[in-house]
Amino acid sequence: MTKAITAASRGIMLCHACGLLARAAPSSRHCGCPRCGTALHLRKPDSLARSWALLLAAMICYIPANILPMMHTKSLFGSESDTIMSGVVYFWTSGEWYLALIIFFASIMVPMLKMIAMMLLLVSAQRRSRWQFMQRTKLYRLVEFVGRWSMLDIYVVAIMVALVQLKALATIEPGPGAIAFGAVVVLTMFSAMAFDPRLIWDPLED
């Protein structure tokens, strides 16, 4: 099989905003796209370092996100605190298994799998692995696509807190878990954005 030509090997940079191809000028280190002015790079700058940093921050936040309560419910029958997992268990035991599954996938599985997938992508890109280029690219696309759905629980908390404010009967207060959980979602999204999928294919250049 013949060797593929990449744009980078020819010193050509792709503008991520407008799709224009521009040849890198040897004189200047930073150059903007001639058409839209976006900063151009052969590869996203410090892609691996940035992506790792954001991913590690997300992993740290994932612990309080799961341990701390998302909501406090105070009612005539006493008060209780709900973590994400206790919410899943509640729905499962009360017969709404489909809701339990949605929340379980969106709030527990997706963030966890996303972080594991990002780790796999980062480690393999760092080691310039020649393993499964296509599958890893597909994994990256999946991570990018699925990340936003973890925001689900944040919206649920927002709606519940706003609606259930019946002073005498019941109130729902947001818990600190919501902050940590929101941070996990945002940080993993930034981490995936910082990763440059072209790094997956770069070992073919060696």
Partner: peptide, 10 residues
């Protein structure tokens, strides 16, 4: 020419 935004193939 066009470059792929995901694998940089020209």
């Amino acid at each position: 020419l066009i470059a792929c935004h995901e694998c940089d193939l020209l």
